[in-house]
């Protein structure tokens, strides 16, 4: 006896297959698109949070040091502090350079003992009507270094020997730093511009910032295709400050609805006034 077992193979028809594949593609496309959008949104939120953190940190640092700044001299010079100038510190001494970046230099009370590594406080002394702490000097310098914003702390003993010289980048993605509208005896006004951090535009080239000259677009000779350009506070037309340009095809074009962020603080020099 022959047992005939009929095996039945079922299959989709071509039409069914195409419809199912089409639906699957649509679903996958939607999932991928949603994922990409979520990723972009997350990245943008993360970038915003990071930038906000940078901005808050910079303001907190500058304001705190201005509040407690006292009178002193720029190390290596006889220039009194607070001081605003261009140059940099080399081996603990200030070297002015007209082409350098702007620095805000403040003197702080020598509050902590330089001989202790655990922040032992010095007791205040009164001399000639002036309160002083310890001996030597503590100098804090704020300066832009590339797209970083640095805080340099130089501690020297009474003989001028540098005990420590620490540079800490306290913020990234900085476009420009300016100290304006100040007499350096009562108030210090600082502004720091940050490059915008967006992810939904093409290009990942170098960030530039500077004078918008003429006040319509940055010079096309600057940078290369894919670069960005933010107009900083040196622009002659204040309404253009913060504008962002993107270079493509050899020319810059304004990016609509995008602005660089500027944070600012105007801080009263409490020690200057208190005395």
């Amino acid at each position: 006896m022959k047992i005939f077992t009929k095996t039945k193979y079922a299959a989709f028809t071509l039409t069914e297959l195409m419809v199912s594949v089409g639906c699957g593609v649509l679903i996958l496309a939607a999932v991928v698109a949603a994922g990409v959008s979520l990723q972009k949104s997350y990245a943008a939120t993360e970038a915003y949070s990071t930038t906000e953190g940078n901005e808050l940190r910079v303001l907190d640092y500058v304001a705190m040091d201005c509040r407690r700044a006292t009178s002193g001299t720029v190390p290596g010079t006889a220039t009194p502090t607070p001081y605003v100038g261009t140059g940099s510190f080399v081996s603990g001494s200030w070297v002015a350079a007209s082409s350098g970046t702007m620095a805000l230099i403040l003197s702080l009370p020598v509050y902590y003992s330089s001989t202790s590594s655990s922040a032992a406080p010095n007791t205040p002394t009164l001399s000639s009507g002036v309160i002083t702490y310890g001996s030597g000097s503590v100098t804090v310098s704020y300066q832009q270094s590339g797209t970083n914003f640095t805080r340099e702390v130089i501690v020297q003993n009474s003989g001028g020997t540098v005990l420590s010289d620490t540079i800490t980048p306290i913020a990234q993605n900085v476009a420009s730093f300016a100290v304006t509208d100040t007499d350096l005896t009562n108030w210090i006004s600082c502004s720091i511009m940050f490059f915008p951090t967006f992810t939904h535009n093409a290009g990942n080239g170098t960030w530039w910032s500077g004078l918008n000259n003429p006040d319509t677009a940055p010079a096309n000779s600057v940078g290369s295709n894919g670069d960005w350009y933010a107009i900083n506070g040196t622009a002659t037309d204040p309404t253009t400050v913060g504008n962002v340009y993107f270079k493509s095809g050899g020319t810059y074009s304004l990016v609509e609805n995008e602005k660089a962020t500027t944070v600012a603080c105007k801080t009263f020099l409490r020690n200057a006034s208190a005395r």
């Binding site: 705190m64 509040r67 407690r68 006292t70 702080l108 009370p109 509050y111 902590y112 655990s118 922040a119 406080p121 205040p124 309160i131 702490y133 620490t166 800490t168 409490r270 020690n271 006034s273 208190a274 005395r275």
Partner: peptide, 18 residues
């Protein structure tokens, strides 16, 4: 009147990357 003002922001655990 104020003769001096200082904010102590120290912490014995603060170290930089170096």
């Amino acid at each position: 009147a104020y003769a001096s003002w200082f904010e102590d922001n120290s912490d014995p655990t603060h170290k930089d990357t170096k």
